[in-house]
Design a protein around this nucleic acid. Sequence first.
DNA 1: AAATGTCTTAGACGTTTGACTAAGGAGGCC
DNA 2: GGCCTCCTTAGTCAAACGTCTAAGACATTT
Lengths: 198, 198
Amino acid sequence: MASPPVARAQTEEAFLDAAERLLVEVGYAGITTRRLAEEAGANHGLVHYYFGSMENLLARVLERFTERMIERQRAMYATEIPFLEKWRTAMLYLAADREYQKIWWELQALAWNRPELQATVAHVNEEWRSVLTEAFAEARERYGLEMPLDALVSLVITFNEGIILERLAGIETGHAELLEWIDGWLEGKEALWRRRKR
Amino acid sequence: MASPPVARAQTEEAFLDAAERLLVEVGYAGITTRRLAEEAGANHGLVHYYFGSMENLLARVLERFTERMIERQRAMYATEIPFLEKWRTAMLYLAADREYQKIWWELQALAWNRPELQATVAHVNEEWRSVLTEAFAEARERYGLEMPLDALVSLVITFNEGIILERLAGIETGHAELLEWIDGWLEGKEALWRRRKR
DNA sequence: AAATGTCTTAGACGTTTGACTAAGGAGGCC
DNA sequence: GGCCTCCTTAGTCAAACGTCTAAGACATTT
């Protein structure tokens, strides 16, 4: 066994990991101290000892997840690759990361009824927004888009959210058509820009 | 007292109404038989007697709500008014009906973890889709939009969903800018069409 | 080696849950 | 008027819940 402080930190992580798995499996309403402890392979009393309450534990899950999301979003758009490639990478993530999205939206649904969690959710949204704002400022200029930047970013964020949420409910109608059209449209804009540059 | 069958139907409705109020207030996870009965002003044993289980009751709430949503959506777009006016009416609803939206998304979040409910949710989505498809087929032709109809409808639906969901979490950044720009853009398209018609 | 302080465990506490039932009551039918 | 069916009520039940505690294990310090 490792020395206590390390072991404790590991067990705490095990609880948070287990909570994420249960969010995917059964949603936030299905998480109880005992089930969580079983999933984490730890004693159910520790939930109270470590975190004080399930509520606090879920708040910790939200915070940890939040940090990871922001890191990922920054990494995706911050690299020095052309906008079109960034977009395509983002759309690949959108298609692939179902579990990740389930966790995120379960936490959001939880926050609908826990106002004290909404600030954390809003923080992620702002981060995402600022990352996208930077990326789309470039794209907007390059492609000569007439839409104000604020509006453009909101449109992109919200339709992404909508796609994720429809998919959580098992709905995929029209998604492929929409994403394909956007891709082709961007490609056309990109080609136009290249021609104009020469 | 009214005769039993009528009274029973009324009490059942009272349960469903109370469930909707609790969905707004505390979310689906906070609804228990006893709390629901208190909210409905009825005996808690009746939940089992009438509906068999809380699960069935929530399924009934979903079905009843579904019917109302479809009716409303049909009514909104089916009248013989110009497309721009339909759009503006829809956007007014979007801005106003927060409780309605909370109920709907609580039911959706419930369905994420109850696959047997997803068919009902999907049905509403399809209805909405078909109503919008008809309305936007007209708009698309009139305004000469290049986007395929499928993709256009998906875009409109998903960004609407995104706006609603961000607002449930207390986020409103960029929404007004986006909606205003769309409104102005449509107005421009409409003016163009009027000029061309002459 | 003993003492110390922290961590972990199993279990107990009272509460709340969904589900169910027995007893009483109201209204319609003969 | 008396029976009969259906409805409503209060209350019971076992299970599961969050919380808390006492006792022991452990590593570290003295």
